[in-house]
Nucleic acid binder design. Structure first.
Length: 646
RNA sequence: GCCUUUGUAGCUCAGGGGUAGAGCACUUCCUUGGUAAGGAAGAGGUCACGGGUUCAAUUCCCGUCAAAGGCUCCA
């Protein structure tokens, strides 16, 4: 008998050679039907494999990430089986699970696959799934593996085998399809009840652009048709919230081919929203002891040679612009920090001056490959809510923590409740891409880890994600649809002060090198606005929205009264306008609802006589009549509530 | 930059080798209506741009630009 420890701590006994599936059956038939794989002593394996002896077992179902991944990985095999049936001779690269579904990279030879082929592939997948083929694990020798794929003529698999050691190679077979695979897999194909091919794209073999481009086929599968339907609804919802679409509908921003790809043009409403975000941040920063500075959009090339950016990014930047007479070279600024370093260096600094916190909403320009541009989320010119803190080494941790507080304030004010912080450290092996001394790096990495821990942040550590000049703390936010966005970042930098030879005089009357902290809670305003558009579906927090109220006169007779109300509201800083069109009230309401103005104030005979307005809330309906003071109170209450502590 | 797909009115889209279409938006007129679309008329296009094939190209072919999805990259 073997002893099996379950996640709740219970220990049960089973016969030698029992599998996780036997464990599941002993608990309930229903559970057994839903078990996709099992975690045995921390390792994910097939549920059907015999247990290795006394062990801990947790059964994985669709509700576990690992269960899902196993399900999707097996689905990738099913996709491959379908492709092999439909396109004989197709060669296979890799087919892993991803966040939403899976893909398989394939070499179709001269053939191509397009949207029109998806239905046939899906039908084939469903047909094969219905055969209830078991996923059969088979250990093979390297020689056997090579023989099999040589006969099959699949050079990609052969290359993968080349990187594996004899004795650790396994094949998995379902139906007639055999694949090189580490596993694990779900018990059989019948678990897959719904399948959809999502898209195709090019992908280089092993991510190397010098190598052959394969066709990547994306798919997603579910254990129930209903779940696929729900997923498709979610995608529709995401489409409706797409900031590019809403940006146009809400008159926030536009692009022009003549201005250039990736260079957003802010329309009045969008510019107003941007301005409000800037003011919000300015106010918060002022309270936190920052001072505003302002610097030009270009800077001499030598500035970036000093900073190291020229060497690192010069080739991948907008190229220098030159003066006609003197031939001086200037760069469009890709970041604000070198300019701020020069401000620090503009006069002698005392330890008593520190920390100095220079803030600037600086617009920077970075070359992005044309294929990478994406609405406001990825642009070539953008404005950072940038600031650089120059401090003494003993102040780093405290300053870092204050910045974390500022970031949390921002996230709260915008209703971004779900987030985690990522501590980005150096690659553990390859350190060639980083500049700066080992000692400074270690100090910086420790300061971040400590500050994050003291702030009680939920953090994950990622190696290899640091900037080339220092480690950083990145905030990853989840929006209302559960999608992840990388936002504000805080970076410790011991390197730039060194390169710019920045100094302050300490209490010991000696020169010391300050430490620099880069930080941008929003990251870029453009990207941040893209996030809040999608997060709120265009229904911005009341304090932020371009237009807080629209006044709808019942007929032309009440336009004057409406204008008066608008004027009154403007005097108390409520942003309001009047719909003066000769339309019926129903029409005005419909248009206001669609443009997502939070409050509609209706004025007709009744209201004019009683000196009130009838208030209607967007998406909610009629709130009844109230006087203007009542409405002001309502607006203020809502704003206080959404800003939290503010 | 690379792969796949797309580009027709401000927006959403139909069409198709021979005079360019719809709905919404816009303009004007009528209507003055109480909680999600009142009526009529009008204006609006080098069918992304450049080249080729053709008697004739918005339509077919090639190139460029832009956009969408993906790859690679991201100070």
């Amino acid at each position: 008998m073997i002893k099996v420890t379950l996640p709740d701590g219970a220990v049960r006994e089973y016969a030698e050679g029992s599998s996780a599936m036997d464990v599941a059956r002993s608990i309930s038939e229903g559970l057994a039907r839903n078990v996709l794989a099992a975690k045995v002593n921390g390792e994910v394996r097939e549920a059907g494999r015999p247990l290795p002896g006394d062990c801990s077992v947790s059964l994985l179902t669709w509700n576990d990430t690992e269960g899902k991944n196993t399900f999707w990985h097996s689905s990738a095999h099913l996709l491959a089986e379908a492709l092999e049936a439909l396109y004989p001779g197709v060669k296979f690269g890799i087919g892993p699970p991803i966040e939403n579904g899976f893909y398989y990279d394939v070499d179709l030879g001269d053939r191509t696959i397009g949207d029109g082929d998806f239905a046939a592939i899906e039908a084939k997948m469903k047909e094969l799934a219905g055969r209830k083929s078991a996923f059969v694990r088979q250990e093979v020798s390297k020689a056997e593996a090579i023989r099999y794929f040589t006969t099959k003529g699949d050079e990609y698999k052969l290359e993968l085998i080349d990187g594996l050691n004899d004795g650790e190679i396994t094949f998995y077979q379902q139906g007639d399809f055999v694949d090189l695979c580490r596993g694990p897999h779900i018990p059989d194909t019948s678990f897959i009840k719904a399948a959809k091919v999502m898209s195709v794209a090019g992908a280089y073999w092993r991510g190397d652009e010098k190598r052959k481009q394969l066709t990547r086929i994306y798919g997603i599968t579910f254990p129930k048709q209903k779940e696929l339907d729900e997923y498709l609804v979610l995608l529709e919802e995401a489409k409706k919230r797409d900031h590019r679409k809403l940006g146009r509908e809400l008159d926030l921003f536009t692009f022009s081919e003549r201005v250039g790809a990736g260079l957003p043009l802010w329309l009045p409403k969008g510019a107003a929203l941007r301005e409000r975000l800037i003011n919000f941040m300015k106010e918060a920063q002022e309270k936190a002891g920052y001072v505003q500075v302002a610097t030009p959009h270009i800077g001499g090339k030598s500035l970036y040679e000093t900073s190291g950016h020229w060497e690192k990014y010069g080739k991948d930047s907008f190229q220098p612009i030159s003066t006609p007479q003197e031939g001086e070279l200037f760069m469009l600024k890709p970041m604000n920090c070198p300019h701020h370093c020069e401000i620090f260096a503009s006069r002698p600094r005392s330890y008593k001056d520190l920390p100095l916190r220079f803030a600037e909403f600086g617009t920077v320009y970075r070359y992005e490959q044309s294929g990478e541009l994406h609405g406001l989320a990825r642009v070539r010119g953008f404005t950072q809510d940038d600031a650089h803190l120059f401090c003494r080494p003993d102040q780093v941790q405290e300053e870092f923590m204050k910045v974390i507080d500022l970031v949390l304030l921002v996230l709260r004010a915008l209703g971004l409740e779900q987030f985690e912080a990522q501590v980005s450290l150096r690659d553990q092996v390859d350190r060639s891409k980083y500049i700066g001394s080992e000692e400074n790096w270690q100090k910086a990495e420790q300061a971040i880890i400590d500050a994050a821990a003291q702030s009680g942040l939920k953090t994950v550590v990622e190696y290899g994600e640091a900037a080339f000049y220092g480690p950083k703390l990145d905030f990853m936010v989840r929006d209302a649809l559960g999608r992840r966005w990388q936002l504000g970042t805080i970076q410790v930098d011991y390197n730039l002060p060194e390169r710019f030879e920045l100094e302050y005089v300490g209490s010991d009357n000696q020169r010391h090198r300050p430490v620099m902290i880069h930080r941008a809670p929003f990251g870029s305003l453009e990207r941040f606005i893209a996030l809040i558009i999608e997060h709120t579906a265009g229904r911005f927090p009341l304090w932020l929205t371009p237009e807080q109220a629209i006044i709808l006169p019942i007929s032309d007779k009440y336009i004057d009264a409406a204008q008066q109300v608008a004027g009154n509201l403007k005097d108390s800083d409520i942003r309001a306008s009047v719909d003066e069109r000769s339309e019926k009230i129903g029409r005005k309401i419909r248009d206001a609802e669609l443009s997502k103005v939070p409050f509609m104030l209706i004025i007709g005979e009744k209201e004019e006589e009683t000196n009130t307005v009838s208030v209607r809330e967007q998406g909610k309906g009629d709130l009844g009549a109230m006087d203007l003071d009542g409405f002001r109170r309502l607006v203020n209450e809502r704003i206080q509530a959404s800003l939290g502590t503010h």
